[in-house]
Every structure is written in C-alpha cells, then in structure tokens.
Design a protein around this nucleic acid. Structure first.
Lengths: 234, 234
DNA sequence: CGTCAGATTGACTAGCATCAAGGACGGTGG
DNA sequence: CCACCGTCCTTGATGCTAGTCAATCTGACG
C-alpha cells in the first residue's frame, strides 16, 4: 500500500526549487508554514490515482518517475506523459473535473500530496504560485502538441529515434537511465514491443547506441539522425 | 491582408459569454472599458501567426474556425487543434515562449487581438479571468491527452469514426457543417487523404452517414460504432 | 538449477500509404 | 450559356511498414 511518510515542510524541502513553490520568497514560505502536505511513497505496483477518480489532490513528484496513461476499453494503452522530479500532476479538480488519466509509478516514488482546496487558497494568496502554475500548463500544452506531431506525422523509426534523442539530450554521449520497458516505450510512441525491440537491436548493431541494465548511451547521435531522419523528418 | 475592423468593447461583445471574460461582473466590465482590443479579420488564405514568431498577442476567436498546425521540415503536417468561437489561442508568450504552432483560418474569420501585456494586467487585477483561463488550460490539456490516445492507440477507422461522432455530438441526427477538406481531416488524424475518403465512401454506402457541400449528417451512429468499434475500441 | 518475465528474432499478414487515373464540381472567361 | 480549367475527391492497383503470432533467448531470482 501507499505509505504516509510524514509531513512536508516547504522551507526545508530539497526539491522546492523544482516545484511550483520555487519562486516563493522566504518570508512567504514562513507565512505558509502551517501548510504541511503529506509526503507519500508508492511502490511500482501501485497506482497514485485512476482515470475517473474524483480529483481532490494534486501531487508533486519528489523522487522517481511516474507515467500518466489512458486506456481504451479493449485494453490498448497510451502513455500520455512521463513525469520527472518537481512535476505537478493530478490537478484536473481545478477545472471541476475528475482525473483524465491514470498515474502509475515507474519505480518506487515519493510524492507530496497537495489537497486542491489548500492549494487553491495558497494560489489565491501568492501570485508567484499562480504564475508558475500557469507557465507549466502552457509548457505542458506545448509538449502535448509536440507529441501529437510525433504520433500523427512520424513513422516508427522516426518516433523512436527522436524520443531517444530527447530523452538523452543534455547528457551527450553519457549513460542515461531509461527505466522504461520495451512495452512502455511502445505505449508511449504508439508502437508494439516487437517494433521497438527491432529498431533498438538494429541501432545497437550499427553502433549508434549501447544499452545495459536499464541505461542507454547514445554513441552516435548524428549517425542515428542521418540514418533515420534522412529527409528532415525528425 | 488581415484587416483591422475596429475596436472591441467587452461590454457590448456578442460572444463575451464564450470568452475568457465570461465570468466578469458588469461593474468590472465598466472599469476595464479603456481596454479596447483590436478586432481583426483574416481570409482563409492568410495566417494569423507562424510557429516561431514572437508571441506578443493572444487572440479570441469571434467568428469562423481556425486550425493550429505543426509542420515537419519535410512538409508533413499535423493539425493539433481546431478552434471554435470563444476559444483563446496564441498565449505562449505568457510562458516567455514564441508560438509553438501556426494558426490558419479554415474560412474567413474574425478575432479579437489581445496584447499579452494588457491581458497580463487584466488577469492580475481580476481573479475571474485568471480562473477562467486556468480552467481552459486544464481543459485543453485534457483534450490533448485524449487526442494522444486517438493517435497512438487507435486504427484509422476508429480514429475517423470517433472524430466524426465527437464533431457531431449534441446534434443528434442533424446536419452539421464540416468545413474541413479530406486533406485536413487526414492531417488531424494522422491519415492520408485516400484513407479518409475510402472510409467515408464506405460508410455512406452502408447508410451510416450523408454528406453534402461541407456538411455531414450521422444517420446511424450506433451502426457506425458497432461496425467500427466492435471490441470497445472507441 | 529451474522458473519466469522481458526481450529478441523470424515468418507471415493486415493495414494503410503510395502511385496513378479518372470523376465531380465550381469558377472563369469567351 | 457553355467550354475550359483547377481543385478536390474517388477509386483501383500495388507495395511497404509495422502489427501479429510464435519460437527462442536472456538474465534475475528463488
């Protein structure tokens, strides 16, 4: 089961600089110290919330990765986003809606559970929070648009290549953890396990990348790009 | 060329109830009457803004429809959203970003051009505006997630059928204008003109729908659903 | 060492794209 | 008013991409 680890204190929070409270000045933090959201852990086989549940809490991811998925009645699944440390999720309640997707950890995670009611208050009283949240929504919308382009206009190899390149950017040539199974990469990109596996194998053979125990290394990004995105397709 | 039609007055605006100013009480409207955004018209062969342009204005659509598109260097295009009366678009500047997509009218349109600087002021001083915008962003994000599911997890026929059903909902059995070419429907759903045309022809022959000069009528939604979404796929 | 989940690989197939030819329709100019 | 043109749409033939099915492999773990 999910496990209440304790109460969070914004002032001492290690990841506050990544959260929606990043821009709050210290005196504000002191003022809101009564606000002590729950810090909760989930293991990889649990679910933070299900699509359709009433959205009473938002969450800030503190440790680990989370996938947000949508599932068709027939079982086909789409990962709509992968969250990283500091990301806010589960805020559909702000629009009076229930959760639009299911949130599942990709590993053991730790989140800060923020009751929407409290968050609404804080947001009202602190323009910085409001502002940071707005910027994030716009940013997410942009990423969603980018993803629609990936899914709608690119072929399998192009999608996979640009996903890997994005995943590994800012890390040029080094090893990057990729804690997604082949199935999950497939669900993210609208491909099957086999297709993902085949391309990765190909590219390993051609020396574009290496892989080891859930980590990946892009050895030759330009080569990969040239091989896959010949005509400027990614 | 785009054509400046005059100045907008929120108090007398016919479509204000659909806009981000819908929730503003009358006394607020009177206070902000100095705010008179430009009302501008564009014809179908113009562009409101291009992906990459600096985002200095947001827009509210007053008349007509607009498509937001993203294009790959090789020319493949994805429509990421189709806008309707009252929709706000072009607000990337709020996040300090340039436009992430290109906005093109689907017909002659009329928009209200809102300088982001002014809008920021208004938003700061009127919580209702802030709130309405927040709800819309969340709603758009939800729609984007839904679209990712469509593009990533459904087959051609399923995508097209659920698009048509969504387009025609709240209009059961009646004629609904569909001012999108086959090519545009394809760009929206990640399909080719031919695939769209083939399915539509099939469904017309089977009596599921009728079409006439840019309007469509879903004659037998249940039949269509049963034929296409056999296993609960849409 | 056996078991099991995930990954790989191959063979085959379905689904959709591509290429190509013709049709419908509205607009223009004689 | 009609012939011509261009644009969009339809339909058919063909081929490639990625999905499906199935067998085998790998590595982690008891």
């Amino acid at each position: 089961m999910s496990n209440l680890k304790g109460r969070g204190h914004c002032q001492s929070c290690q990841i506050r600089h990544l959260s929606i409270f990043a821009q709050l000045p210290m005196d504000r933090l002191i003022e809101i110290q009564a606000f002590q959201p729950s810090v909760v852990t989930y293991s990889a086989d649990e679910t933070v919330y299900y699509q359709g549940d009433a959205s009473l809490n938002a969450f800030t991811l503190r440790k680990g990765l989370v996938k947000l998925i949508k599932t068709l009645p027939n079982g086909r699944t789409q990962i709509v986003r992968v969250l990283r440390t500091g990301d806010l999720f589960g805020f559909d309640g702000f629009a009076g809606e229930s959760y639009n997707h299911t949130a599942i950890p990709l590993s053991e995670i730790e989140v800060c559970r923020l009751p929407l009611q409290d968050l609404t208050e804080l947001k009202k009283q602190n323009a910085e929070i409001e502002n940071t949240m707005m910027k994030r929504w716009i940013q997410h919308l942009r990423e969603a648009e980018d993803m629609m382009l990936e899914l709608g206009a690119k072929k399998a190899a192009e999608r996979l290549a640009s996903f890997l390149i994005r995943w590994c950017e800012n890390n040029n040539g080094g090893w990057v953890p990729l804690p997604l199974s082949r199935a999950e990469v497939g669900e993210l990109l609208g491909l099957t396990i086999e297709t993902v596996s085949r391309f990765l194998s190909d590219w390993k053979r051609q020396g574009f990348l290496n892989e080891q125990r859930g980590s990946i290394q892009l050895e030759n990004v330009d080569g990969l790009r040239k091989a896959v995105c010949a005509n400027g397709s990614c």
